[in-house]
Amino acid sequence: MPDDHRILCTRPLPASLIRQAATHGVHIEVHAFIRIQSVITPAAAAVISKLASQPATVIFTSSNAVTAVSELLQTQSDRGTQWQLYCLQGATLDTVWQYFDGQQVIATTAYSKELAYQLLNDKPEGPLLFFCGDQRRDELPDTLAAGGLALQEYQVYQTVATPVALPTAYQGVLFFSPSAVTSYFSMNALPPSAVCFAIGHTTAGALLPYTSADRIIVCKRPGTNEMIQTVIEYFDHNNNY
Results as ranks from 00 to 15, higher is better:
Y234A: 05
A206L: 11
N188D: 03
A213I: 02
A204E: 04
S193H: 12
A213G: 06
V181A: 05
I199F: 14
A169D: 08
P191H: 12
M227T: 12
Y184D: 02
I232Y: 10
A198S: 13
E233M: 05
S177V: 01
A213P: 07
E226K: 13
M227H: 04
A189C: 05
S212V: 13
H201Y: 11
E226M: 09
F185L: 13
I228N: 06
Y210E: 05
C219H: 10
A198D: 07
S183F: 10
E233L: 06
V173S: 09
S179C: 12
K220E: 14
Q229C: 02
C196S: 15
A189E: 08
V181H: 01
D214Q: 15
S186P: 01
T182E: 15
F185V: 08
S193K: 15
Y170N: 07
T230F: 13
K220Y: 13
N188L: 04
P191D: 02
V181C: 07
S183Q: 03
H201G: 14
P178C: 05
I217P: 06
S177M: 07
P192F: 05
G200H: 07
C196Y: 00
L190R: 11
R221C: 01
V218C: 08
P178R: 11
G205F: 06
I232P: 00
S183V: 09
Y210M: 09
V231F: 01
V218Y: 11
A194C: 03
T230D: 00
E233G: 00
Q171P: 10
L208D: 11
T182G: 03
L207K: 09
F176C: 10
D214W: 10
M187P: 08
K220T: 15
N188M: 01
A198K: 02
L208N: 00
A198T: 01
S183A: 15
C196V: 08
S179Y: 07
N225D: 15
I216C: 03
A204K: 09
A189M: 12
A180K: 01
C219V: 04
Y234N: 09
P192K: 10
F185E: 07
I216F: 12
F175M: 01
